[in-house]
């Protein structure tokens, strides 16, 4: 009897909370669809630049589904590799083949090497090419490649939760109402939150950066200062987004519900998985995801040792996201006080 009463109560509560109900049934479908899109897309064809390579050989590569571009000079090919347009360059130097890999993504390296191997086998026995790497090296593990993305992801994730829950508590405990009965301006609340939490996110970013580079020995080609900057910006974006979305939640539980809706899709689009395999129009979705920019900059700094000019766009976009969310926050507070 009591068991029945308890289970009926739970069913009634669930039926009241439509959002939880929707999440329970729809979120798994959303995430499964995302996974299908990410893992079941078109096959990736490595982009290879050819310099002074006999046409027979080039055709063979094309036959193997590689995207081949022929360059007149090694310099222009090298520039394209640097710019990330190519995954590798194959060139003849002194009669010997030389392969230079872009190197950032171990899975692409493997794909190119496999392709080369296949092409060699079917061809007449020419000498095995000398292999060099633009970034990283043969020892670069998969973790070195997606580590930078994970750093960004976890800062984002935890700051998002923390900010969301604490702003929600401000509302449910009535302190927000009291706060708004003082002459504080709405933007002052938002900036105060940013500053207060900002100190902790700065500490968090520093700790994570130090730990992953010095303790875990993550591959690090660039400046740790830049890495800190990106991590901090990512945390600020998470902070402003978390406080904004907490306006649309009425309990801690509902904050948790934002994870599959806001956090998980970002993880899929952040570069943990190769987006090249995805439908091009779906790839465009990544442009609205803050984590994509943060992860892009982090990978650039840590693996390719990029300097300011290479990732500054990411910085501006992250600042833009933070400003946008902060502004929406100020507007959302209007719901609680008319002025």
């Amino acid at each position: 009897m009591r068991i029945r009463a308890l289970s009926i109560r739970i069913i009634r509560q669930f039926l009241r909370d439509k959002r939880t109900l929707a999440l329970l049934f729809l979120a798994p479908l959303l995430i499964l669809s995302l996974m299908k899109l990410v893992f079941d897309g078109q096959s990736v064809s490595p982009a290879i630049g050819m310099v002074d390579i006999p046409a027979v050989f080039t055709e063979k590569f094309e036959h193997l589904n590689a995207a081949i571009t022929v360059y007149e000079s090694p310099d222009s090919a090298h520039a394209a590799l640097q710019a990330g347009e190519l995954d590798a360059i194959l060139q003849l130097s002194g009669g010997k083949p030389e392969l230079m890999l872009e190197g950032s993504d171990p899975s692409i390296n493997r794909a190119v090497l496999l392709l080369l191997q296949t092409a060699m086998q079917t061809g007449s026995g020419s000498a095995a090419p000398a292999i060099t790497y633009l970034h990283g090296g043969p020892d670069m593990a998969a973790f070195d490649s997606f580590g930078p993305v994970l750093i960004g992801f976890f800062s984002f994730f935890f700051v998002f939760l923390l900010a969301g829950v604490s702003f929600l508590r401000e509302r449910t405990s009535g302190t927000l109402e009291r706060l708004l009965a003082t002459p504080i301006k709405r933007y002052e609340i938002v900036i105060g939150y940013l500053a207060g939490f900002g100190i902790f996110t700065l500490l968090q970013a520093s700790l994570i950066a130090w730990f992953s580079v010095d303790v875990l020995g993550l591959y690090m080609a660039g400046s740790i200062g830049y890495m800190l900057l990106i991590n901090l910006l990512l945390s600020l974006t998470a902070l402003t987004l978390g406080t904004l979305l907490s306006s649309f939640a009425s309990s801690e539980f509902q904050i948790i519900q934002f994870i599959p809706l806001v956090i998980v899709p970002q993880a899929f689009f952040s570069g943990l998985f190769n987006l090249d395999a995805m439908n091009p129009w779906l790839q465009k979705l990544s442009s609205i995801m803050p984590l994509y920019y943060g992860a892009d900059a982090m990978q650039g700094i840590m693996i390719r040792g990029e300097s300011w000019g290479d990732f500054q766009i990411d910085v501006y976009v992250l600042i833009g996201f933070s400003l946008l969310f902060a502004l929406l926050n100020v507007l959302a507070l209007k719901k609680h006080r008319s002025m």
Partner: peptide, 18 residues
């Protein structure tokens, strides 16, 4: 409503808000 008037009155809500 006026923002500056918030300085003039003291408000205590039903919840303790601490």
């Amino acid at each position: 409503p006026q923002l500056k008037m918030l300085q003039v009155f003291g408000y205590m809500a039903q919840s303790d808000a601490l």
